[in-house]
Amino acid sequence: MHGVLAYCRAGFESECAQELGGHDRALACGGFARTRAGSAFVEFILADADTANRFDAAVRWRDLVFARQRLQLAARIDGLPERDRLGVLMPAIRAVGGPWCDAWIEAPDNDAARELAALCRSLNHALIAALKRERLIESTSSRRLHVCLVDARTAFVGSTRIDDAAPWPGGIPRLRFPSSAPSRSTLKLEEAFLTLLDAGERERWLRPGLHAVDLGAAPGGWTWQLVRRGLHVTAVDNGPMDAALLAGGLVTHLREDGFRYRPTQPVEWMVCDMVEQPRKVAQRMAEWLVGGWCRQAIFNLKLPMKKRHEEVMLCRRLVEQAVAASGRRLDWRARQLYHDREEITVFARCIAT
């Protein structure tokens, strides 16, 4: 088998397939998608190994919006026996090559596959032991082996380049909700920092003492993430903020409309989780970036029920065109995070040409 296996949010298989198809058309690879509603994964089939390698090299995981993880496919195995699954998997795994720095057995994030968690764990331990016996685990390897159990009898075998892949099984960072945070939306911004920024960017751009604006801040879930990193935050919202967050001394609450507020001085960050039409949010974000009111922005786009992929592309073009008209180019990184729902999260900044 040659192609890509992409994990996504259940219900967004069509959008993930559209995205992969767009890259395929740009590369003239001639691939096609196989999807099933609610499966939380997409198979994208390519003609041969050379085409698959070309697609894998050109389509970076970090450039995909709807794919939590992207594997280069090597095999699909049907009819796994109940008592010796590993014995059937190993010939296909050996055929992939290796060595690998690690091996993960995982399942898609759907209701049926969640019941496979215990099986994945037990098989993973056995697989690692088998790979070590055959000297197929090597810490310096640049690739990771993946086995995706679709159900107890069906598996895909694939691999990823660790420099361009999610560093978490299933592409899902397991974050714990902090008890002192005002709302669960705080996890979206934490995941955005982990997923959309690299370690060096987090160190440079999230230093104590920097200033940020949170548009639509109440009750303060996103503000909480900035404050815990020592940033001074102007929280803009007509609604009430969490009292404990305000008592810390790093938050200034302004009861104003987030779509009209403008800072008196440029800030390092603007973050925004306002519930509004995605195009309206995109236009407002473009104003902040082009006007130099912030250096970086993270914002959510609440997607419509239909034509969601098209809406994402339209919003990106709106911001790109505004930035290009100012003589700069746009650094745009977007992902449908695990903690997102009918939305995507975007990091954006302007770069000099």
Rank of each mutant, 00 (worst) to 15 (best):
N124K: 12
H309Y: 14
Q265I: 09
S141E: 09
D198E: 06
H146Y: 15
V290D: 08
D63N: 09
L86F: 15
R70H: 05
F299K: 01
E43C: 07
D24V: 05
L27Y: 15
M1T: 10
L337I: 02
R174N: 08
M285T: 05
I105Y: 03
R255M: 09
Y7V: 00
P219W: 04
Q283T: 12
D273M: 13
G11T: 09
G221P: 02
W224I: 02
A192H: 01
D50S: 15
G249D: 06
A247N: 12
H2T: 03
G3E: 01
D102I: 05
R308K: 11
V147A: 09
A47N: 10
I45G: 00
V96K: 06
A6K: 00
Q296T: 05
R228D: 13
L196Y: 10
R94C: 10
Y338Q: 04
L119R: 03
L80A: 14
A117Y: 03
K306N: 14
D214L: 09
F299D: 02
W205L: 12
L136K: 15
G98D: 05
S185D: 02
P263V: 10
C29M: 02
K280Y: 04
G200W: 04
L46S: 04
L123V: 12
Q72A: 11
A28H: 13
R85K: 15
A286R: 07
A67V: 06
I137N: 05
S14M: 14
A17P: 03
D214Y: 06
L119N: 01
C101L: 14
V42T: 04
P173M: 05
A334S: 11
V88L: 11
P99F: 03
G292A: 07
R54Y: 06
T353P: 01
D257R: 14
G98R: 01
L197S: 04
A130T: 10
G200T: 08
N53P: 02
H253Q: 07
V96Y: 09
H339K: 12
E342F: 05
C120P: 00
V88M: 07
L250G: 02
R228T: 10
H2Y: 11
W288R: 07
A297Q: 15
L189E: 02
A17S: 11
R176W: 05
V147H: 13
A282C: 14
L73N: 01
I351T: 13
R135S: 13
Q69G: 05
R60P: 06
A325V: 05
A217S: 13
G170R: 01
F299V: 03
L246P: 08
V88I: 08
D273P: 00
T195D: 04
P167V: 04
V271P: 01
G209T: 15
L189Q: 01
D111F: 06
I105F: 03
L86K: 12
H211D: 12
A117W: 11
A348F: 02
S142N: 12
G30V: 07
E287N: 07
A199K: 11
Q336T: 01
D340N: 12
L86I: 14
R184E: 08
H2L: 00
M1E: 08
L330S: 06
A107I: 02
L123Y: 13
C120F: 04
N110A: 09
A243G: 02
E342I: 00
R204H: 06
L246S: 03
G171E: 09
